[in-house]
Simulated scan of single mutants.
Amino acid sequence: MKNNTQLAIATLAVATLATVSFLVTPASAKDKAEKHAKHATTTSAVAAAALLGSVPEQAPAPKPGHSDSTPGVAWKTIGGTVKAIQGETYTVEDYEGIQIKLRVGKSTKHLRGDKKVGDTIRAEITQGGFANSIQ
């Protein structure tokens, strides 16, 4: 009889513990979500700018059909074959077959000499298509 009573008490204790954990877990999750939401608002760009000082602005991308005429912030590096040279504009076909027009000026760094049609090049360009350097 004593074993039956102990078994009943143990079963009741486990059931009570399970019920309490089912009730506490959602409340705990809700509280955690509220803390996370409060934290997220303090990590916004405005707050970061306030902590770090001014954030440099990037110049807007040039409109289609317009190109940069001076060196600037490097946007990407392209590689391919020179297909045509018309004045200061090089037409380069990249390795995927896409043709890109780059503008070359006096401030473009020509590494490894001047280029001609048929040469394979790698160029660092601005978003407006000006070649900062060609090699």
Rank of each mutant, 00 (worst) to 15 (best):
E124C: 02
K83R: 11
T70S: 10
V104Y: 02
Q86C: 03
K115H: 12
D114L: 14
A33F: 08
A47K: 03
T108M: 09
T42W: 11
H110K: 12
T41N: 11
K101F: 03
E96D: 13
A84P: 03
K35R: 15
G97M: 08
E34H: 11
P60H: 00
E124K: 05
Y90I: 05
G53H: 14
P56K: 08
H36Y: 14
K38Y: 07
G72I: 05
D94E: 06
A131K: 02
T91N: 07
K109E: 12
A40T: 10
T126S: 02
Y90T: 03
P64T: 10
Y95R: 09
E57F: 06
V92N: 04
T108H: 05
H66Q: 10
A18T: 07
G113L: 04
S133V: 05
S28E: 09
V117W: 05
T126N: 00
S28C: 07
V104I: 12
A18E: 15
K101E: 14
A47T: 04
T126F: 01
A50V: 09
I125H: 04
E88N: 10
I121C: 04
Q99I: 05
S44M: 06
P64W: 06
V55Y: 11
L102S: 02
S69W: 00
V55H: 09
T41L: 10
K32P: 01
I100L: 13
V55I: 12
H66E: 10
A18M: 14
A48R: 12
P56H: 02
W75N: 04
H110M: 15
E88S: 07
S67N: 11
L23F: 12
A131F: 04
S107R: 10
K35S: 13
Y90N: 02
H66T: 03
T81A: 07
Y90F: 15
A40S: 15
I85R: 04
H110A: 13
A84V: 08
Q58E: 05
A84W: 07
L23R: 15
L111G: 04
A84G: 06
A47S: 13
T43Q: 15
G72D: 03
H66I: 01
S21A: 15
G72F: 01
Q99N: 12
G65E: 15
G118S: 06
I98F: 13
H39N: 13
R112P: 00
Q99T: 14
T108G: 07
K35I: 15
R122E: 11
G72A: 10
H39R: 12
T81C: 03
R112I: 11
S28R: 08
A27K: 13
H36G: 07
S54M: 14
T91P: 02
L102P: 00
A29D: 12
K30S: 14
G97F: 11
G72P: 00
I125Q: 04
Q127S: 07
G72L: 08
